[in-house]
Amino acid sequence: PLEVPLRAIVAFQGYMRDAVDLRPGDHFWNLADPGWAYGLYYAVTGPLALGHATTFYDGPFSVDSCARVIDKLGITNLAGSPTAYRLLIAAGKDFSTPIKGRLRVVSSAGEPLNPEVIRWFADELGVTIHDHYGQTELGMVLCNHHGLQHPVHPGSAGFAIPGHRIVVLGEQGNELPAGQPGILAVDREQSPLCWFGGYHGVPTKAFVGKYYLSGDTVELNPDGSISFVGRSDDVITTSGYRVGPFDVESALIEHPAVIEAAVIGKPDPERTELIKAFVVLASGYQGCAELEETLRQHVRQRLYAHAYPREIEFVSELPKTPSGKLQRFILRNQEVARQHAQQATPVSAC
């Protein structure tokens, strides 16, 4: 079990103040369930620790209920997950028209924020949405801050939140310069607001020397910001290249036919892995060979020749955690099981 010490509240306050930019005049709503760490830390504890009222909706998430609450309570500061935001985008004008101009700032956490989501919120709602990164063990530690001035680049998770030193480590435990992918780590000796001290009664393998290793692959940018590449076990090795699934998913979502996408590496004897995409289509589109090829070319034009999905499977939904995070490992396991079943099937002789 995870122990959350009382001093963590100071870090929660810092996130609400600097990243969420929660102001006394705001009407705040965090869409996250309080059973999820982001909801417990930043829908309950963080706002109340600042003496600020918070909002809860007792019911399942829907586009209609979201619009109704924002309108009725005059919500100005919204936080949630990209999964929820993509559902709002799929509703289009039915959601955006009634609340355009109502929101002052929007924050996103749980998984990387696709550029298409950022553009939609700016164009359709007239509001800036920023990407924030954290873990249950750490709280939020890497953010594009609404309340601080710094450069914001599409695809970047931002800068270390005050009180934390975030670095990128190589395989030998050395801190890497800009442009080299490695593991996101917290320098615990120089992070006074890092409150995680380990699991109760269980050794914490993520502690290596003075660092906490997150297990996420990232890359340091020249300006000091950090870009998310993917979970270490999600990064795809294909024909000698390393491809982050997030980039391919983001390119797919930019196509109007796609609501959601999940990308995995499928074992392949020639390429080590080939890129396979699972796609949820928008209303009015049907999966077919022609659309598959259209989506492949769409990705090739936006990324690079080796990063397009060689296989596309159209699905009705993607596996997610209760908090809305994609569970790519389930799709990978299904693919491996499918391949094993095909290899085990005897071939009838003529």
Rank of each mutant, 00 (worst) to 15 (best):
113 L>E: 08
113 L>H: 01
114 N>P: 02
114 N>W: 05
116 E>N: 09
116 E>Y: 06
118 I>D: 14
121 F>H: 07
122 A>N: 15
127 V>G: 13
127 V>L: 13
128 T>I: 14
128 T>C: 12
129 I>V: 15
129 I>P: 06
130 H>Q: 09
133 Y>N: 02
133 Y>D: 02
134 G>K: 06
134 G>H: 11
137 E>W: 11
138 L>F: 04
139 G>Q: 04
139 G>A: 05
140 M>C: 12
141 V>C: 12
141 V>Q: 03
142 L>E: 03
143 C>R: 00
145 H>P: 01
145 H>A: 13
145 H>M: 10
146 H>A: 03
146 H>R: 06
149 Q>W: 11
150 H>S: 13
150 H>A: 15
151 P>R: 11
151 P>I: 08
153 H>S: 12
155 G>M: 09
155 G>F: 02
156 S>V: 10
158 G>N: 09
158 G>W: 07
159 F>W: 07
159 F>S: 01
160 A>T: 10
160 A>S: 09
161 I>L: 15
162 P>M: 06
162 P>V: 09
163 G>W: 09
163 G>M: 14
164 H>T: 08
164 H>M: 12
165 R>L: 10
165 R>G: 00
166 I>K: 02
166 I>Q: 05
167 V>E: 14
167 V>N: 06
167 V>K: 08
167 V>G: 03
169 L>M: 08
170 G>Y: 09
171 E>N: 11
173 G>F: 05
173 G>A: 05
175 E>K: 00
176 L>Q: 05
177 P>A: 00
177 P>I: 08
177 P>T: 00
178 A>I: 02
178 A>Q: 07
179 G>L: 08
183 I>Q: 05
184 L>A: 14
185 A>R: 03
185 A>Y: 08
185 A>K: 04
186 V>K: 05
186 V>A: 09
187 D>K: 05
187 D>M: 09
188 R>Q: 07
189 E>M: 05
191 S>K: 01
195 W>R: 04
195 W>V: 01
198 G>P: 10
199 Y>L: 13
199 Y>I: 11
204 T>C: 15
204 T>K: 04
206 A>W: 05
207 F>Q: 02
207 F>M: 06
207 F>G: 06
210 K>P: 01
210 K>C: 03
211 Y>W: 11
212 Y>Q: 05
212 Y>L: 15
213 L>P: 00
214 S>M: 14
215 G>H: 12
216 D>P: 04
216 D>V: 11
217 T>C: 12
219 E>P: 00
220 L>F: 04
222 P>F: 09
222 P>S: 11
222 P>D: 07
223 D>L: 13
224 G>S: 06
226 I>L: 10
226 I>D: 07
227 S>Y: 07
228 F>Y: 15
229 V>S: 04
229 V>Y: 01
230 G>Y: 02
231 R>G: 13
231 R>Q: 12
232 S>R: 14
232 S>H: 13
232 S>V: 14
233 D>M: 12
234 D>T: 13
235 V>T: 09
237 T>R: 06
238 T>R: 04
241 Y>H: 12
241 Y>K: 03
243 V>K: 00
243 V>I: 15
244 G>F: 03
